[in-house]
Write a protein that binds this DNA or RNA. Structure first.
Lengths: 114, 114
DNA sequence: CCGAGTGTTCGATGGATATCTTACAGTCCC
DNA sequence: GGGACTGTAAGATATCCATCGAACACTCGG
């Protein structure tokens, strides 16, 4: 298999979804969760590819955290890339905005913590 | 008690919430439900105060329906008024739009049924 | 090669909530 | 007043999903 660096087993590459093929209901459900809102906000305040999954200050274990990122990936809001031992993230602002105009702004603008 | 028309028991007037005092999370949770999305869309295509609760084509019993309207009222998206034996509805478009810009449009514009 | 660090997967658990059934409260019309 | 109609309330059930613990996979540095 002509794949990547020689000599190695690799972690399964994260599967990404195009926001364009995501339903409104799915997007809203994904985003209607306090932990995920917190992740999105924190991510929005950081530069792309600078935040690893474990670097977020959320009150859940790493298993749940992994699940949350999976959900966010599943609606095309977050993109992930493996960088050595860790998995770094970025918000797919433009693509998501194109499919769900205003939704991301709503999450980031609203001044409440919940 | 000096309350309303004389001689009469009355149905409890529906309690309304100002969208201004609703959290983003609550609004998103309320709106992230297939039945409620359907209600909102159907309501949006009708003139104000013309649709009674029972007049919506949703696949749930009337008890569940009553619950859904209660949720929508609770986030300030729907206003209700008693009109004889039935309770008629209207969308609080402007107020909701002011608090959650773009959210209602998102629900109405997206061309998918789910 | 081993150990520390990072993240995923699996199974189980608990809590929230959407739903139904039944019973009740008003309203209107005869 | 009786009966049809409309909606709410309360209790029971069921389903979904967020969370955790434990085991595993991969990366990197000694």
């Amino acid at each position: 298999m002509a794949n990547q660096a020689p000599g190695g087993g690799h972690r399964a590459a994260p599967v990404h979804t195009d926001p364009e093929e995501v339903s409104v209901l799915a997007a809203l459900s994904a985003v209607a969760d306090p932990v995920r809102i917190q992740l999105i906000r924190e991510l929005a305040h950081s530069a792309d590819w600078t935040r690893s999954c474990g670097s977020f200050d959320v009150p859940v274990g790493k298993a749940a955290l992994s699940h949350h990122f999976s959900v966010l990936r599943g609606v095309g809001l977050v993109e992930q890339r493996d960088e050595g031992p860790r998995r770094v993230n970025r918000l797919r602002r433009e693509e998501f905005e194109a499919r769900f105009p205003g939704l991301l702004d709503l999450l980031l603008r609203a001044g409440d913590t919940d």
